[in-house]
Amino acid sequence: MGIDPSQIKPNKTVDARGTSCPGPLLEAKRSITQVPIDGILEVLSSDPGTKKDIPAWAKKVGHELLGMVDESGYTRIFVRRKK
């Protein structure tokens, strides 16, 4: 069974709300190295493209998408750093 993403405790949260595509993805790329390997990065984004972009990026680069939580006007996206 999957974990409930709303219960995830990230090592770091980066707030990319208000930046347009692909700003939140660049923030994720920049910030992932600031959490330890196996640590969790949370990205806050108000750009709807990010919900597709971050999973595609995680898959390509080799990190693990843990889940997303839709809030009012933005989404919280959780990625586990794998390397």
């Binding site: 595509c21 692909p22 993805l25 990026w57 390509k60 680069v61």
Partner: peptide, 11 residues
């Protein structure tokens, strides 16, 4: 420019 930054994000 948007495509370039998308590409960079995807390595």
């Amino acid at each position: 420019a948007v495509l370039v930054s998308g590409a960079v994000a995807m390595d």
